[in-house]
Every structure is written in C-alpha cells, then in structure tokens.
Write a protein that binds this DNA or RNA. Structure first.
Lengths: 112, 112
DNA sequence: AAAAATCGTTTCGCAGCCGTATTATCACTT
DNA sequence: AAGTGATAATACGGCTGCGAAACGATTTTT
C-alpha cells in the first residue's frame, strides 16, 4: 500500500461512509464496528473483559453490543468450559461474510 | 494510491476506528460523519435539503445533526440572503482542523 | 468450608437519535 | 393581493445506548 495524501485519505473515508449511510444498511455504531473488526482481525480468544480493556470502555458496553450484534448474527457468545465465568466471543458465517464485503467496499472506494 | 488487499483495507479501517473509540473523543454517528465530510470535501453551497437528498435521509436528520455539530463548533448555519428559506451549512476553523487531523490519522494507520 | 475476588449481566434514570406529522417563514404564481 | 409551493424547524412517541451501581454465578484464596 503506497502514497496517500491527506485529501486521498479523507476522500476514501468519505466514500466508504457515504456508501454505508446512503445504503441505509443496519448502521452499527463506531463501538460496534470496533468490536466486530477486533474479533475478526485479531487472534482470540476474545472475552467481554478483554474487549472492554482493549477499547477502553466499560463492560456493559460490550455486553449490550453483543446483544445487538448476536441478534444480527454477526457474532456469537459461548461459555468458556474451562472457566465458566468467561464468555468467549465467536465468529459466525454471516459475520465473516459481512466483514469481507466491507473490505471489498473499502477497496472499491480507494480505486476512484 | 496503490495495491491494497482485502486484509489491508480491513486493518486500515480497524486501526482508524480503534483510535477513534479508545480515544473516547466525542464519537459522532456515521450520519454525522457523512455530513461533516460532505461539507468539507465537496463543493458548496450545502443546504439542508441538498444534504438530505445526497445522504438519502430525511431533513430532520440533517437539522438535528446540525444542532449537535454546530454546538461542537464543527459546522455553522447561515441564512441564505438570496432566498431566506435556505440554510447554508458553512465550515468553521475548528471543523477544518478536525477534518484535517482525521486525514492524518488515516494516513498514520495506513503506514503500519 | 468460609470468605474474597472475578466475570458477565442486569437494573436504573437519563440523554440522544429516529421517523412521521405538523408548523412557521419565505418565495413564487396568477 | 391571495393562494400555492418550498424550506427548515419543531413536536411527539418510541427506541437504543450510556455510565454507575448492584447482582448472581463461578473461581480462587484463606
């Protein structure tokens, strides 16, 4: 990946967001996006506490985001059988597809 | 700007959002971002109706976003003196600085 | 076994944004 | 001048997310 001017960067960001907004798709919040991409791009296992620490937010924020996103089938919860206090945040097929499509959208925006 | 893999694109997006979220700055919604960048990147004049059409949202969405963002001094309203029904959305010094910093953040994220 | 610590969830009151419908101004048409 | 059209703002009820605090379940410590 090479040279990008300030203007290039902003226009890329703008294009992606415009696509997102005008499409009217389920618009996740910034925090929800952060959680989603963290789970799909970083190596696990991912716990509620771990995600909260990584994003510098409180745990209820993670819990609520998981409620919303698991209902959209973008993520799933699973009790850790080794330590039943923990919840492991897991990927889903639909979520993986969603994230991959998002990458394609960014690339398409960068091509202009 | 050159070759970008799907993974590159997603990691770029992830880094920028993570920075945004963990910084805990006033997190604008996607729609607010779309408005902000449209005003700063596209040629004006920008009206409420025009922005609503461009983003495919209703006018009250724009009005409320302008309420919030003008309070943050990221944008300003000005009555069009040629047609006093119109409101012209104008840039501010603080807003220009904010947008430019955002571009720098994207570039920094792309460097990794 | 009892006490303390850890983890995720839930509750509470509160603030923000949503879409629809209505309102107040202003411009245009006749 | 009166009526019609257009613009932005507001009112309304509803939904979602927020932070702080309290809670139940599980593990670890004493």
């Amino acid at each position: 990946m090479a040279e990008m001017s300030n203007r290039d960067a902003l226009e890329l960001w703008h294009d992606v967001i415009m696509n997102q907004v005008s499409q009217g798709a389920h618009d996740l919040s910034m925090r929800q996006f952060a959680i989603l991409f963290t789970v799909y791009l970083e190596v696990g296992p991912h716990t509620v506490r771990g995600l909260a620490a990584k994003l510098s937010v409180t745990k209820p924020v993670i819990t609520r985001a998981l409620d919303a996103m698991s209902q959209l089938d973008l993520l799933a919860r699973k009790r850790d059988q080794n330590d039943k206090r923990n919840v492991l945040v897991q990927r889903t097929v639909a979520g993986a597809l969603y994230v991959e499509n998002y990458g394609d959208l960014i690339i398409r925006s960068a091509k202009n």
